[in-house]
Design a protein around this nucleic acid. Sequence first.
DNA 1: TTCATACTGTGATTTTAACTCACAGGCGCT
DNA 2: AGCGCCTGTGAGTTAAAATCACAGTATGAA
Lengths: 300, 300
Amino acid sequence: MNTYPPLNALRIFEAAARLESFSAAANELFITHGAVSKQIKQLEEWLGVKLFDRTGGRVKLSDTGWRYLIQVQDGLDLIANATSQLLQPDRLRRLTVNSTPTFARHWLLPRLTQFRDAYPDVELHLVTSDRDISRLDAPFDIAIRRGPGDWPGHIAKPFLEEWEQPLCSPALLERAPVASPADLARHTLLYADTRPTAWQRWLTLAGVPDLKPASTLHFDRFSLALEAAMDGLGVVLGPMPMAQDEIARGRLTTPLPSPIVPVRAYCWVAPRTAVDDPTVSAFCHWLETCAAGLNVPPAT
Amino acid sequence: MNTYPPLNALRIFEAAARLESFSAAANELFITHGAVSKQIKQLEEWLGVKLFDRTGGRVKLSDTGWRYLIQVQDGLDLIANATSQLLQPDRLRRLTVNSTPTFARHWLLPRLTQFRDAYPDVELHLVTSDRDISRLDAPFDIAIRRGPGDWPGHIAKPFLEEWEQPLCSPALLERAPVASPADLARHTLLYADTRPTAWQRWLTLAGVPDLKPASTLHFDRFSLALEAAMDGLGVVLGPMPMAQDEIARGRLTTPLPSPIVPVRAYCWVAPRTAVDDPTVSAFCHWLETCAAGLNVPPAT
DNA sequence: TTCATACTGTGATTTTAACTCACAGGCGCT
DNA sequence: AGCGCCTGTGAGTTAAAATCACAGTATGAA
């Protein structure tokens, strides 16, 4: 048997905390701000903690409030999703996900069994494309792109941080060890047209902006550059944690632990009209949950 | 923004559904049975479905009600746990888990980073032992054993199905291929004292009850038998999905896809007095979630 | 500095939801 | 048939939720 807080107050807390505004929450919930204020106060007294820091008639989520929000939000989402599915039992649960090829190949595919297992009734269609979202021919329920981006009419949220690090096959490293950035001069650097400035940025941060590699190879798609690295063709500036699985499999290794170059986070992007779809929000929630279980970037 | 059902009614529904009794729920919640009856009716009308089948003054959870319960129960548990942790912030979150060695080595350890990441404040102590729970010297918060078992004073729940399949190293298979169960006669079979009848059972089901292996090797601990298989010493009857990770790493392979012999499921076992501890229930919930993400046994 | 705007806080009051109580009906068992 | 146990329900009571109107505070622009 569980102990629940006042559930109505909790519902209102979630909205106020998410929006960090009592009046915005009141608007969303179609009640007065006074009601919001009272419910938050009631919850705080019931719990015995301050959920918000208050300054001059403004509220800001406290540390305690933030931690509590993160947890109860998941619980409330489960309840909302279960309820939505019950209210719309006949809705065809087909999902079209449009992802960049690299992300699809190296992060999404190896994890899709998890989603399928959790939602066996969802018919998933995975489409890959590097095109800008506004120029996609076919409709999609969710797109996965690196952000930030200009996506009018859409809701977007980052869910996976990405950073770049040199990657190569262990066999290549054995033939020509890399102990410092300057050693890359002996190697072939693998470039992708989709990330034209990646190497220059990394070399600059590594302190060797004028480094001349032994040779370069260029690919139109980044996923090809990554495959080339695994085949021992050279050193690629790899996206982490995307390539983490290949490292675990021993197909890639990281010769230089630093510098770690943060790049754009992956975002899910959904049309505004679709965000209330329980299947869409289930997939987005799954993306976030999956990504949250990954290792954080090593400290720089 | 989410749509929530009447949350108070939902709270009462969970209790009534779990207990499949309105009066028992009323007793648990310290309200009258009439209040329970009205709240359930309100919720059913709000949702537009029958959550219970009613016969002669008795209730039985309907299919719809059961499916709804499963989902909202998780949501409510998350809320209750988040609230409990907030109400007991100073509780030392130390957890002692007593696991069988094989399970700890091959399933739990590779996954513990997930638990640590999700609950960085929990100080986990992992103890391994094959002893019966009643004969353990040291106390534990959670024990992991194969069930079913006789564990008075404890709450137990299966969370991971186990099945057995022959496993050996790829190199061994190359030297002496195994195309049918009878080919095992050319191999060393690896036995563990802790599973004395495993091989006989499998061979019987495979249709070769009288098969005589080239030789046998016996180990007092099963984990040693598994290591021996990885070292190419022979064929072990391996626990799946426990050995899945080693297969993925290429250290083991499955020469014969069938028969699949289901054996006892792994259960978490907790003292009755500990089941309300949020850390204990968090760990049990994590075990179940982790196990649910694994592949199901192949069809026989 | 003043003023306007936007925000949260709160007491008194109103509205709504939750609950009680007492009676009713149904089923299973003796 | 009688009894015990269960759920159902209308009328009434109690508690919670919400409104309303006023109050206080911070910020930005003139």
